[in-house]
Nucleic acid binder design. Structure first.
Ligand SMILES: [Mn+2]
Ligand SMILES: [Mn+2]
Ligand SMILES: [Zn+2]
Ligand SMILES: [Zn+2]
Lengths: 143, 143
DNA sequence: TATTTTTTGAGAATCATTTTCATTTTTATC
DNA sequence: GATAAAAATGAAAATGATTCTCAAAAAATA
């Protein structure tokens, strides 16, 4: 992580700060989907002086660098996660908020066809499906 | 439109107001992707006393009723459109904002497979692809 | 180490959307 | 159609996520 951060910062003429090292590390170790506030809370545990503005600034920066991705999972704020080389999508339970990740060659195929058909140069695919997970499905249908 | 509105309002015990009739009609006639402000502007041309709060309230209501759909097309506010029986998705040019609509049996197939695999009851699929449209593609690559 | 450049923290500002509440409109009842 | 009860509206304030401002601190460069 630190090596990667250094590389990317150098590349774009940014400084490597303690805040950046900490934040990227926390996102990396979280594995899941973090929102800005949760990241801020965790960061403050180790750098009590860090500011929420710094969290937002650097989330934006990491995203520009391609290190993380931003998702809207149904709430009115964003969640962030380390961007892995293989793209994935999200299936969210609208009742309990559970998030399942998935990928599908069908989506990749759809992208390729669309690229040809519309002659766009497509660089981003965001797919979110919503529904009820097995548990919530039951609770809703005791009919 | 008015018949539909009446039906849905009755069904859920809501009143049929002039504001609702006007707003739904404007969305219907717009065909494209309207945001709350644009809808408010157009509504005011015919009911100068209408409030932005009423616009938001009723967009939310129409959405709950399943009459319209809400999309995030890349800006930090929502766009709305009449919900047609056949689902469609969006391809957005990140340079000029142009929006192309599409649907694909591949996506439907992916949904079915996922439904089985994860045992979710899926009722919503939102797919947004981003890229550069043919025109913007050229401008960016004069290499 | 000295100088220049970038980033940070704190708080104010922004902007889309929601809430509040008194007033008006709609609905249901007669 | 008039009347009372229920729901919706307008205006303004509140909210909440995110961005901006600017003086002070840290990092990069010389
Ligand atoms: Mn994910
Ligand atoms: Mn559309
Ligand atoms: Zn669930
Ligand atoms: Zn374009």
């Amino acid at each position: 992580m630190k090596m990667i951060l250094k590389k990317y910062c150098k590349m774009s003429g940014r400084s490597v700060t303690n805040q950046r090292k900490l934040l990227l590390d926390l996102i990396y170790r979280a594995k899941g989907h973090l929102d800005a506030d949760e990241l801020f809370r965790r960061a403050k545990e180790q750098q009590q002086r860090i500011s929420l503005a710094t969290v937002y600034r650097n989330l934006k920066l990491f995203k520009e660098m391609g290190l993380i991705s931003e998702n809207r999972l149904g709430e009115n704020h964003s969640h962030y996660e380390i961007r892995s080389p293989v793209e994935h999508h999200h299936l969210v339970c609208r009742s309990c908020g559970r998030v399942e990740e998935f990928d599908s060659p069908l989506i990749d195929e759809a992208r390729l066809r669309l690229q040809q058909q519309k002659e766009f140069d497509i660089f981003s695919v965001q797919l979110k499906m919503e529904g009820y997970c097995p548990k919530c499905k039951q609770k809703r249908k005791p009919s």
